[in-house]
Design a protein around this nucleic acid. Structure first.
Lengths: 247, 247
DNA sequence: CGAGCACTTGATCGCTTTCAATAGCTGTGG
DNA sequence: CCACAGCTATTGAAAGCGATCAAGTGCTCG
């Protein structure tokens, strides 16, 4: 199931997420300890990386690609509860089994750490522990922002919110100036979007068409999105129109 | 605004949340340091403890009572994003301003720590940092569970889920054996429930009546809830029927 | 006793879901 | 090369659930 290919990189210094991931604050000697317990793994789009309830021997950082965390009810209703982009962390120290199903939405490379030694490193390396706390607090904020989207926004606002969040995160990763038009690849199927937003895929499709008709977004193919005017998108999302990023 | 009454307690050893809160793992000398930077504050039901955007000079633990975290959109739509029961932690180290509005749902006593010295303690006291990480991870799990409720459950299931979660947490706090019937005081107005569940208060009222009519719950007054059969409530919530508490 | 508040209940409306049909794309095999 | 399966996405029509608008109940407090 898990295609364990070793990607090109093995040295942390070449790593694209070196300064954003859980290892961001590590010194050279601390990185060396991490390198001893890590290995890279690749997954292809659609693959399940881990099932909820599985024994979890690794925690990991997303190096490239997009992965999702989902929860499923007995009757099949499904809700995405996390969208993992490069530098995001997966897994919970001190926990034996996975709480959520992790799926590769695109081809994904993960930097996996053996859980037990990683837990020891947390205890002995404040740089890692603090960074992990900080990232967890950020994720909690993101989850709470998402609760507002799920609980109170209309279908149209939900779609606009998702596009805005992805656009923002892509912009962060690219370090690109967000002047004028922004464009990005949506790495999610309509169904994955509906799982994130608590909608049906038909409603997602309809609202995407509506936003396109109204010129809020331009579609280049099914998945490449161009946002001519970010502030208009944010308006549609029901967010404060100032582009001010919290944090 | 903040009625700064000193409650009876001042010694951490008498504190009802001593072994559950952020200080749970502290040794005697560490507690002494915390005592130097803490003070208790009381708030009466309905009071706003802190507004989103306010400067935040304190972080705190809930000692008794119930507080809520809410987010509000410009047009007034409101979503609760956190329900704080005794031992829960409020506030984010390293952040100057509050992200959410904190409101006392009942009379509340909080144990407030001055933020700056608390941040230093986090850096110097692994027992506190680790406990805070653990609590934050628990909150993140709770938020993700709530995302499933908000995104995919029906009104009836939402109400049942809320009652089940409160019943469970009350049972934890009371350390009571959960054999047979469980009863507890719901400390939330119908409106607060609707804010939590992404519903209107009318829908909350209707579904409460429906659950009562179907014998899933018994109401003693408006706010005291008796659950004759917890497994039936969990069934209505759409959860796995085994009463197994995750973690 | 009346005002104010929390809550309940009823009737109607509308948004999202559901059910269904169709289009477009990709890869496979005759 | 084309036909066809399989998948993703779009679009239409109808149904249903929760929201909205509105009225009324019961309680507390002045």
């Amino acid at each position: 199931m898990t295609r364990t290919l070793a990607p090109d990189l093995k040295d942390c210094n070449d790593c694209p997420i070196r300064h954003r991931a859980v290892c961001a604050r590590c010194e050279t000697d601390e990185l060396r300890k991490l390198e001893e317990i890590k290995n890279y793994r690749s997954f292809s789009a659609g693959q399940t990386i881990m099932w909820a309830g599985d024994r979890m021997d690794f925690v990991a950082s997303v190096v490239s690609g997009v992965a999702t965390l989902t929860q499923t009810m007995e009757d099949g209703r499904r809700q995405m509860v996390g969208l993992l982009l490069p530098s995001d962390f997966v897994g919970r120290p001190q926990r034996e089994t996975a709480s959520y199903t992790v799926t590769a939405a695109s081809d994904v490379v993960m930097c996996c750490f053996r859980r037990k030694p990683f837990e020891q490193l947390i205890a002995s390396t404040p740089h890692i522990a603090h960074r992990l706390l900080e990232m967890t607090l950020d994720e909690l904020d993101a989850a709470r922002e998402w609760m507002l989207v799920l609980g109170r926004k209309t279908a149209r606002e939900k779609i606009a919110s998702l596009l805005a969040i992805i656009a923002r995160r892509i912009a962060e990763l690219d370090e690109a100036a967000d002047t004028g038009a922004i464009s990005f690849d949506l790495m999610l199927t309509r169904e994955a979007m509906s799982d994130y937003l608590g909608l049906t895929l038909e409603t997602v499709s309809r609202q995407m068409s509506a936003l396109k008709k109204d010129g809020i977004i331009v579609l280049d193919g099914k998945r490449h999105i161009i946002v001519p005017d970010m502030s208009r998108l944010l308006e549609e999302a029901g967010d404060d129109s100032d582009g001010g990023l919290p944090v």
